[in-house]
């Protein structure tokens, strides 16, 4: 069990998010049970007021969740100092079964909170609030996700043993017969490369088509989600060495997705672009779903276009950044393909 300032603050942050979410959920249940649209009773007025509170609480919870994701990676990086064999966040997260699971749940939570906020934003702009029931039912689903997040993280911290040697990126992400590959997943690097460039360009093209013709919003949203996953996969396989070699002069076997964060300007920009493209892009598909409600159509279309533009810009940004570093790499090493 490791209990230090980093872990304590992380748990404090999560406790705050949990408190906010429980409070929001309690309000949500009340609204769910008593909501009578069209009635002019004092209670209905009070419930409408409370819906503002709930949306504020969830907005804050999302903001804190994003901070908590950043801090979680930073904490894992810090903990590497205590864990035999760990050199950075990868080694710490790999120290037991819960590290990467907690990370995955945290990322999923960001998508879930964002979806809720999109629904809420559109719903609160209408007069008749057509989505109240769905909205507050969904709110109750956010809570288990958060509890899973806290559970996994606590298990992760309590499960860390300083005397058990963990495998870090240097040993896990390298294998001789599979030069670009992610050994922990046995994933061929060439395929990851194809998936990354394929899905990122597909998502960008689909967004463009969607913006031009107002069609293909669903495929564009799904492609954004695929591009997001492919980008993360790319960072675990073939993409990270370009950054690591150029920024830090590390050997090409150093296939670590966290190393790039040691250069905050590049690292956080890259991940911010990947997350922005993924979250806003996939919300395009959600907005398409919401368009089916008549009273939402106008606002949903407006929001959808904004999200599509944002996603397009972020996709282009991450693609340009990646290509730029591949180019730098080429100018240093003399080849794009390293073996």
């Amino acid at each position: 069990m490791i209990l230090n300032f980093w872990v304590l603050s992380q748990l404090l942050g999560l406790a705050v998010v949990l408190l906010l979410s429980i409070y929001a959920a309690l309000q949500g249940i009340r609204i769910l049970l008593r909501w009578r649209p069209g009635s002019a009773t004092e209670e209905q007025l009070e419930l409408e007021k409370r819906s503002y509170l709930v949306s504020t609480l969830v907005q804050y919870a999302l903001a804190f969740q994003v901070l908590s994701l950043l801090l979680f990676v930073a904490t894992a990086d810090y903990l590497a100092g205590f864990i035999s064999g760990a050199m950075c966040a990868f080694g710490s997260l790999n120290a037991n079964d819960y590290g990467f699971r907690a990370l995955a749940v945290k990322i999923a939570a960001i998508f879930a909170y964002s979806s809720w906020l999109v629904i809420n934003y559109l719903d609160s702009r209408t007069v008749d609030y057509p989505l109240v029931k769905q909205k507050y039912a969904l709110l109750l689903l956010l809570l288990p996700l958060l509890i899973a997040d806290i559970y996994l993280e606590v298990r992760f911290y309590t499960g860390i043993k300083a005397d058990v040697i963990t495998s870090c990126c240097g040993s896990v992400l390298r294998s001789l017969d599979n030069p670009y590959g992610f050994v922990a997943m046995r994933f061929p690097g060439e395929l990851a490369m194809l998936l990354f460039f394929g899905s990122v360009s597909a998502a960008a093209v689909l967004h463009l088509v969607h913006l031009r013709t107002s069609r293909l919003a669903f495929p564009a949203g799904l492609a954004s989600l695929a591009a997001f996953l492919a980008s993360l996969l790319a960072m675990f396989t073939f993409l990270s060495p370009y950054f690591n070699v150029v920024l830090f002069g590390l050997p090409t076997q150093h296939r670590c997705p966290f190393e790039v964060l040691r250069s905050p300007a590049v690292g956080y920009t890259l991940y911010a672009l990947i997350f922005t493209a993924g979250v806003s892009g996939s919300m395009v598909a959600l907005a398409e779903l919401l368009k089916r409600k008549n009273s939402l159509r106008e606002d949903a279309t407006k929001l959808q276009r904004t999200l599509a533009r944002l996603s397009l810009a972020a996709l282009a940004g991450s693609l340009i950044l990646s290509l730029a570093f591949m180019l730098f790499f080429y100018s240093v090493v003399g080849t794009i393909f390293y073996h």
Partner: peptide, 21 residues
């Protein structure tokens, strides 16, 4: 940067949470 984030998490986050209601 991580240190700054850490301090932010422990000071600003509880403060902002306390003023919501």
């Amino acid at each position: 940067l991580e240190d700054l984030l850490l301090i932010f998490m422990v000071s600003v986050v509880p403060f902002m949470a306390a003023v919501i209601v």
